[in-house]
């Protein structure tokens, strides 16, 4: 039966929310890029990569079943993303040096990335600690049919976002080094 506190269904709901949450963040990043003409710098691109990598663990959970190793991959990606964001904060934190890019609710986007990445580490450590989700069942629960399909839609969305980011990087940087303060596309 499993614990009421954290069933496999609850774990599936959370992983589906993870996937769509990360997709939402990346879509917002594209909105800033296309609508506000705010081209991503190299560190910004690494943070986008970090978010997509954070979604990989959740994707594996939804495709292959819940494993602590899948959560671990997302945690490593979250720590990486936090380091990259912290680097960008450090570059602009000294008074007078000026920030980079637009602000949201008073904080720069890289500051929000740092906050979200650290919260993600805490969240993933909390979620992965519930053992009930790792119990394997023989019978497939029919109530999860909609969630399984929704999960696959989310994974497909993440895959499309990875491809779109690759395309955006090609238009911005080609195959070479990306400019530090990009103002226009080179292709």
């Amino acid at each position: 039966m499993g614990s009421i506190l954290f069933s496999r269904r609850a774990a599936r709901v959370l992983n589906v929310l993870d996937v769509f949450g990360i997709a939402f963040i990346l879509v917002m990043a594209f909105a800033f890029q296309i609508i506000m003409k705010d081209l991503p710098c190299p560190l910004c691109l690494l943070q986008r990569f970090g978010f997509l990598a954070m979604g990989f663990g959740s994707a594996l959970n939804l495709l292959y079943g819940f494993r602590a190793s899948h959560y671990a991959l997302s945690i490593v990606a979250s720590i990486y993303t936090a380091f990259v964001a912290l680097r960008q904060i450090a570059l602009h934190v000294v008074p007078g040096t000026g920030g980079y890019g637009p602000e949201f609710l008073g904080l720069h986007l890289y500051t929000w990335v740092f906050i979200i990445a650290n919260l993600a580490v805490l969240y993933l450590c909390f979620v992965m600690s519930f053992a009930e989700q790792y119990q394997r069942h023989v019978r497939v629960n029919g109530h999860n049919g909609f969630l399984r399909k929704l999960g696959k839609v989310g994974i497909g969305l993440l895959f499309i976002l990875v491809l779109l980011n690759a395309l955006g990087v090609y238009f911005e940087c080609g195959f070479g080094q990306c400019p530090e303060n990009p103002t226009s596309y080179i292709h």
């Binding site: 190299p42 997509l52 990989f56 990875v162 980011n165 990087v169 940087c173 195959f175």
Partner: peptide, 9 residues
């Protein structure tokens, strides 16, 4: 950087 996103895809 393009190769980075390609490898993730």
């Amino acid at each position: 950087m393009f190769l980075l996103f390609c490898s993730l895809s």
